[in-house]
Design a protein around this nucleic acid. Structure first.
Lengths: 334, 334
DNA sequence: ACCGGTACCGATACCGGTATCGATATCAGG
DNA sequence: CCTGATATCGATACCGGTATCGGTACCGGT
């Protein structure tokens, strides 16, 4: 029907018998307009179905209502939950999230950041602290709030919301050791790309070493980080080292796969072998066997990140208070 | 550093000694520019770090490079995978996805659509065919490609990529019946909101009736559609009707929970009770027991939807070829 | 030398809003 | 009745690009 005749502010103004400027002010609730005009403009706007044009207002103003979000992957429920938290946090603010998937590829990441910046977004949320130098420069010069999420092990560009993966790895090693485990293996995916999983492994190993232990077996694969891979690698690891009494996985998906293998083979968990993952997926709670995990507040991270951009967190302008580190809780239900 | 002195096209033009217009053409690869000018402009643009401003070009042109995506939830891996497919399909097209989460709320959906339209997006991808009348009107008048995904049971506004949930439900009922099951129950979540799950259930019941059967028990809950809920409801259902020999779940998450319950209680699956879900999550393959599911091509749906917007699918302009229905394959591995 | 055609370029007018600042009207105080 | 303050508006200039259309310059053909 209405082909190219989009209702514009000028139309509203004309219909309401005021100037564009007054109409603009009335609709935005900016000052210097009489109550009568406001009423009239708002009414006619509604009547003729005025919608407004974000492009125009963003171009005119100096900033848009867009907020860019970069995640490495969406095949993993974890990042979907972060997005979910972001969507939740954004609600009511009038902001709108634009997302990009980097596939753990620094160059892709750089290009997406570039592209997003050219929308003059209100802020940017990027995953991790390990961008390329070019990307970092871009972010530094952007002159908008930039929130790096998930990780806090490193130097943030601006704000930072996440957790220490080194510490998470260390804590998990200590947990396993406290459970009396000593023949421990590691199973992971995509280690060459997922720097956070690397950091966890590093912390884990460091903590083992501190206790005079080291990994008995280490299996990694390029396959997708999913239950299937976890199950297969667990079978391999146990075949190789049948007396393993603990396995640390790079995340819960793999760990769940490990649990499935053990169930299928009648290996008791955690009695004979304790399985430890990372994230605290919902799934974990209902598994028929108890596996250990570090519960991370994904949704909370997303929400908190948004607050740095909406300014809900403006109270903390000091650089040192612009990093928020959550401590994942480890659930060990014997 | 570069506070408000963003490099603009005028800067590039000046530095290259040409007019804004020529610079614009050179950078876009539009015609009517000498090879020498193109080279010069591109070089100086790179030198002084010109980035371009999507807002301006989108406002000036009639359409932006944004593409709006609406999903009901991101707590469910299914929609994350759809987004993932969309991100994949978009790659290289210069488009950028904006997403919104409706929470299965029609009014929220309407507001998000409204808001997205005011970015003059290149297209819109919305989940499902059951929008409010207001939303539908908005979409119809938008004069941009609109792709409704996941569902094809209904009348699409424009293009449509998904599958028939009625048929999926019917097919699953037939599968269970063919397996010799007759005391069948249903377990679901959020039925009042998730219209696609409703449709599956409807088809399922219809098919049961056609075979002289009906549901023995039906358990639903408002709890999140996750494994935990599935496990709890399964316990309830089996307590109530111990001789159930088949359970249809509204999705795989719940079904997995059901499997966990059965494993924990030593109930053999599928011998004593067959469990059927929906989606074909990766998880299903590695479960220690075999459960039945309808495999849906989530990623593919996302990718295909994008093609309608980028025009990669422009060959099909006829309305009847603007609906693409995938048929989910049911995996029954005894 | 004249002419039409082609290749290349730039001035100008937008796109649809908002910032700015000056104009007009109204009103209290003197 | 005049003055200055206050409230309300609107004309104009942008924001940073692109569409349009009207020049130049240079070409080969006659």
């Amino acid at each position: 029907m209405d082909e190219k005749n989009r209702v514009t502010l000028a139309d509203v103004a004309a219909a309401a018998g005021v100037s564009k400027m007054t109409a603009s002010r009335a609709l935005r609730g900016a000052g210097d307009v009489s109550a009568r005009s406001i009423e009239k403009v708002r009414q006619t706007a509604k009547d003729i179905g005025y919608v407004g044009n974000h492009l125009a207002s963003s171009l005119s103003g100096k900033r848009s209502d867009l907020i860019g979000v970069l995640v490495p992957s969406l095949a993993n429920i974890v990042f979907a939950e972060v997005l979910s938290g972001i969507a939740e946090g954004i609600e009511g603010s009038g902001l709108q999230p634009v997302f990009g998937v980097t596939d753990y590829d620094l160059e892709k990441e750089y290009n997406i950041i570039r592209s997003m910046l050219s929308w003059n977004p209100a802020g940017l949320i990027v995953t991790g602290l390990d961008q390329s130098d070019d990307s970092t420069r871009l972010l530094k010069n952007a002159d908008i709030p930039v929130v790096q999420i998930m990780d806090v092990d490193g130097t943030p560009v601006d704000a930072c919301v996440g957790l220490s993966h080194y510490s998470a790895g260390e804590a998990m090693a200590e947990t396993l050791i406290a459970m009396g485990r000593s023949r421990i293996g590691y199973i992971g995916c995509d280690l060459n790309k997922d720097t956070r999983a690397q950091k966890r492994l590093e912390g884990f190993k460091r903590s083992l070493a501190k206790n005079g232990l080291s990994l008995v077996v280490e299996k990694t694969s390029e396959n997708p980080s999913a239950a299937k891979t976890g199950r297969d690698l667990t079978a391999l690891a146990l075949a190789e080292e049948p007396d393993l009494d603990g396995i640390y996985y790079s995340n819960d998906d793999l760990a769940a796969g490990g649990a499935f293998h053990c169930i299928a083979c009648g290996i008791s968990v955690p009695e004979r072998v304790a399985l430890a993952g990372f994230n605290g997926l919902d799934l974990i709670d209902s598994l028929p066997v108890k596996i250990i995990t570090s519960r991370t507040p994904r949704r909370e991270i997303g929400k908190t990140a948004v607050e740095f951009i909406t300014g809900a967190n403006r109270t903390n302008e000091k650089p040192e208070s612009r990093t928020i580190a959550f401590t994942p809780s480890i659930s060990v239900e014997t």
